[in-house]
Amino acid sequence: MTAPVRLLQCTVNGRATAVAVAPHRTLLEVLRYQLDLIGSKQGCDKGDCGACTVQVDGVPKLACLTLAVAVEGREVTTVEGLGERAGGCHPLQDAFDRHDAAQCGFCTPGILMAADALLRRVQRPVTPDEVRAALAGNLCRCTGYTKIIDAVVDASRRLSQP
């Protein structure tokens, strides 16, 4: 039996958002199918692949394993918000473009959100090993990861320039 819907109030990509959700809906379902934010991808839907990675209060988490009602009062950032925050194209997105770090692109939104959380946490140029560790929960079946790591390292250097 489905429990009654309730009003979820939170911030999504900087905008105050109110949306009616059933308690068993995941954050990913609400983002994609109620708020039309289809950047976050539905991959394995059980926590293995990282394609649904979003930031909750700046911490990268899996939207497929987060109940929508659990983000009440919190700040959710999706890949759509990443570009907006940078006024169009985020330096990470620019680096992914220049390094050809996206091929099919399905994993890219989740990887961008995990990488952005790393760069915002450390606030300095990162090493390839730090990128590998931070992206260890995001699977990519196309690139072999090398170009992704290059792009994140490059973006971290550019972001650290005065």
Binding site: G50, T53, A114, A133, A136
Partner: peptide, 9 residues
């Protein structure tokens, strides 16, 4: 345990 994303949760 698992991945950084899962350890954050």
């Amino acid at each position: 345990v698992a991945s950084p994303l899962i350890r954050n949760m």
